[in-house]
Each structure stands twice: as structure tokens, then as C-alpha cells.
Amino acid sequence: MTLERGLVLERGVVSRALDGLLEVAKERGLEEIPNCYYRDDGLELWDIILKFVKGVLSYYCTDCDVKDNTELKAWLNAIFHSGFLQNKQAGFPKSFSSVEELVRFVTMMIFTVSAQHAAVNNGQFDYGGRMPNFPSSLQLPPPKRKGLATEDTITAALPSVSCTVNTMAIVYLLCSNTCDRMSPEPSGHEHEHKTMEWNGMIIQIYSTFLYCFLYMGKCSY
């Protein structure tokens, strides 16, 4: 079972190591679809995150700082072994040669664990909270030919009330905000340091962009 799960994970990460949202949209044919909110909102959020990451990393790093950086190599190596299961076909980088490459990589990571995760995770209860949309199990085998299913057979195949309640509780918890979020604002003596003052300014600008996007539906750069 562990081997099979590992093979599935390995196949799942192939060619997705450094894909940005724009590349994914093109690959899935979403580039020309009108009113595609996942694409339109996602690309705007991607751009906001990109500017934030570039603002921070460009202050700390030059291309010379990034090239052959042993800590960055160790970080990438840990991700490659634990996250990509040493799958060489995934095209995962062994090192970064410029700040631009590092910015793109960090942007991809932040977008994936924030906006992308929210897009595919936070709506689970909205859809799965109604049991026929999201039955956790079937009590009867599915029909082998069309036209055999009736209202009685469909009802008999649905899970029990107890199983349904447990499933609803699980998807509700998965969609809930965590209670251990950390504030991005620097605090205490950190304000005295020039680097933290810069970070605080970047965070304020980033927060303004997000506020405009979330509550005003637009973001001017």
C-alpha cells in the first residue's frame, strides 16, 4: 500500500515543480475562457504576491548572494527528497542562479499554500455539506447499465446518517480557519532594525494591495 501511494505521488508531481498559475491556465485551456474567476482572481493575487516577494528578497539578495548558496541548496535538497520523493522527472532545481529565479520559486510556494489551497479547499463544506453531492460511501454497488437506477436504489445506496454527520464534520473542520495564525506585523525591538523597518513597509504595501483586491475588486500598482 505504501509503495502504491508513493508511485501515485511521484506521478502527481511530474512537470509541476515550478509551474506558475499562468502556465497551468494555458495547459488546461483556461486562457481564453471568459469570466474565469479562478484564473482572473488567481493571476491578480499571483502578481500581488510576486511584488511582495520581490520587494523583500531584492533587499536582502543579489545574484551573487543566491549563486552557490549552501543554505538554499540544502533547502532545495530537503524539498526534493521529502516533497518530490526524489523524482528527477519533476524538473526540480538543484540551485538558484539569480534573485529572479528565487523570487519565482518563493512566489509559487506562497501562492500554492495560500490562494491555491484556499481555492480548492475552502469550498468543500459548501459543496460537500449537502450529502448527495459528496457521499462518503455507497451502500450498494453502482448499476452496470444505464436506466437501472431508481429513486429507491439511489436512496438505499447513500450512507447512513451517522456516517454523513461525521463526513460533514470533517469537511467543516478542513474549511475552518486555524486558531494558531501568526501576525505578519513585526513587534517589539525588531522595529529598531533597519531591515525590519523595510519588511514592515513592504508588508503594509502588500496588505494595501490585498485589501484593494478583496474589498474593492481592483488593485492599482
Rank of each mutant, 00 (worst) to 15 (best):
Y38G: 03
I154P: 10
L140C: 08
L102W: 07
E23C: 05
D19T: 07
K94H: 03
E100S: 09
L3G: 03
P34R: 03
F92M: 06
R11M: 11
A74T: 14
T208Y: 08
H189L: 10
D152C: 00
G129A: 07
L21K: 14
L158C: 05
C212N: 09
R39F: 02
S98M: 02
L43Q: 11
K94I: 11
E190L: 15
E192Y: 07
I33M: 14
A156P: 01
I49R: 00
L76H: 09
N121Q: 10
L18I: 12
M216K: 13
L138I: 02
G12H: 11
P141Y: 05
T153V: 07
I203R: 02
S176M: 07
T155F: 10
R11P: 00
H81S: 10
M216G: 06
M196P: 00
E10W: 10
M108D: 08
V106A: 05
C212R: 03
P141C: 06
F92D: 00
T70E: 15
D126Q: 07
P159T: 01
M168R: 09
C163F: 08
S98P: 06
I110W: 01
R145V: 12
T2F: 15
E44M: 14
N166H: 09
D41Y: 01
G91P: 15
M109F: 01
G6Q: 15
R16Y: 02
G20D: 11
